[in-house]
Design a protein around this nucleic acid. Sequence first.
DNA 1: CCGAATTAATCCACGTTATGGACTTAATAT
DNA 2: ATATTAAGTCCATAACGTGGATTAATTCGG
Lengths: 392, 392
Amino acid sequence: MTQALRHDSMRARNLGVVLGEVRKSGPISRAALAEITGLTKTTVSKMVGDLIDSGMVTESGAVRDGERGRPGTAVELSGERVAALGLEINVDYLSACVVDLTLRVRTRCAQAVDNRTASPVETMSHLQELAQKAVDEAQAQGLFIAGTTIAVPGPVDGGLIHAAPNLGWHDVRVPDLLDLPAEVDNEANLAALGELWFGSAPEDFLHVSGEIGIGAGLVVGGALFRGARGLAGELGHVVVTPDGPACRCGGRGCLEQYAGQDALLRAAGLAGAPGGVPGGVPELLERLRAGEPRPLEACERAGQALGVALTSAVHLMDPGTIVLGGVFAPLFEWIAEPARRTMTARLSTMRHTVPELTVSRLGGDAATLGAAGRVIHRVIADPYLWRRFASR
Amino acid sequence: MTQALRHDSMRARNLGVVLGEVRKSGPISRAALAEITGLTKTTVSKMVGDLIDSGMVTESGAVRDGERGRPGTAVELSGERVAALGLEINVDYLSACVVDLTLRVRTRCAQAVDNRTASPVETMSHLQELAQKAVDEAQAQGLFIAGTTIAVPGPVDGGLIHAAPNLGWHDVRVPDLLDLPAEVDNEANLAALGELWFGSAPEDFLHVSGEIGIGAGLVVGGALFRGARGLAGELGHVVVTPDGPACRCGGRGCLEQYAGQDALLRAAGLAGAPGGVPGGVPELLERLRAGEPRPLEACERAGQALGVALTSAVHLMDPGTIVLGGVFAPLFEWIAEPARRTMTARLSTMRHTVPELTVSRLGGDAATLGAAGRVIHRVIADPYLWRRFASR
DNA sequence: CCGAATTAATCCACGTTATGGACTTAATAT
DNA sequence: ATATTAAGTCCATAACGTGGATTAATTCGG
């Protein structure tokens, strides 16, 4: 239910509105902010003053909006004080990054670890080291870490990972294993948000994360759609052929059995081992470029299967556009065309526009960036909460 | 973007919060309202006074919350003043209803019209008559009609019906053909909302409307999910078998080809004609009850296909529960079991709870009721807007 | 080169809204 | 009958945004 407002919550919201507008409209004068938000110049001035005091905003030169008259002093987000830590646990690596309020990446580090063989405790201890390194570097730059988010490959329910089949984790309460207050979210969700904030994607899109599994994150009106229990977006298990090959999810003919990384490599005649040998995808790319028929055929079929699953997804969720990320990003050239063809054949009669298929520009970094970005966006939405911590 | 708040909008929101709580928590004292909303008793008292003045709330007897002390005077929604008109255009009938602020149905009328053979203008002129009758009756009861919504079978984009294949309508701007300010929305969407508000469904569910076509409306946290362009929920065209029979949507093997009303009747050996002969479903019910093997087999197959499509829907949208409405309501007994079996087999490994399948308790009335309910819920969310019109 | 016009930002008195403690009212318990 | 408890109202106060006046910094026209 919507919460009742009091004077302080009104102020908090308005502060968020003003800061959000500063973020959106770049360097902008107080007068223009007043115009856009509908608040008076007086109110905006006071708020901008507070935001400057708390180190979230700085003045930067002058702007001339009209032709005549006194020019305004522009204000913009300051990246010098508030920052966020994004962490990612994936099947074969860990990564961390620190992002400032302007969404500039200030620190970034990664480490190859096989988390399938390591225990959750071991993995988390590696992650702790990586996080500490990133935090130290950030503090050396004078940054204050407002919060941390961890991306994990699997459905998350309030910090608890009930089952992450690709990691082999069961009932792990991730934040408890880290010496840092942190929140946890699904890798596919955060990758979608990463694409939204760092990849200049539109306001409405479906981001497809092709990894060992295939996940998807739907963004509508700039907000992530999570479903009733936060488990939405499991594109990998959408039914492509009801009596197709058995899937580890218990179903048959799921998309993952046609376009998942393992299935794709196997169909291409590479790496029969589950999980794929290291270098599987680079090898596949090489053979595709060399024009070998079997890999080409494998991509064609995977693309068609993806097209079928996306057709169902479009009918059900009506995304604006579709962004292919993860391993589908390097494979875009070979996968997108058959997928697009399949979708167009099946959708064009009912809709006058079939969602466009585009490539992710972030690839594998999307989730880590999204994790940090989520914290930043929360601070911007409610700067009142953070003003004490951020101020010098 | 979220809007900046001023004193008046703060008051408007709080008034809505209080009224919403009155709706939700039935007869309730001012003190309890203050407790729940977090506002002070003073503020709540003033607001309740305003709401009583505008005829939206009445005092009703006393309530004793604790054991000792002065009992509170209960306030609850008043159904005596504010009401809403819901209209529905469907393939073979028109209907109208007037609902008051307490969601009690005050007037209800319907008319059988074959809208496939009638032109949009003819249909709308019939609807105008029906609406006028309902409005007159409501005014005779002293009710004030706060607004009108029209339910139509087909995707709607801001009042414009681009193409409603089941009606044979193209580019019809529905509100322009009615002598009444009204909004238009998709029948499947409004049926889902009707189920939410009138059928005591939970806060999260997917409502499946089995008519000639199969639509679905997803409700998450009490709000309808519409997708980027408002076209979400086309369950009927989710792919069940990629190389199945051709569908009028241009695809192949869509759910509608297995579980749509026409396909179902045909498979049961009834009514080869598209659209079904009148009495098709009652006849089918009779034969099912008689235990005829071919209709039973048809329902079994339709249920399995529905289960496959719902499996994809659950993976993508993660609904809490699933409500079967429209023709699936009377057929529930024969369709639900195979659908449930199929879903459980495919979903239970990945999720520890498979969404429950339940019957709609409203059947065909859901959309008309939802149309009226939408207006009521808007008034309750923002009573400030309506206080002048409603007040004595 | 200087005054008029124009726009930005700040200042200050004011109106609106919610607050919180005091007070009144109405019930139960002792 | 008196104390206790809780509901509802009253009133002075605080928080916040408003809007007009003022000051500041430009450009334009003569």
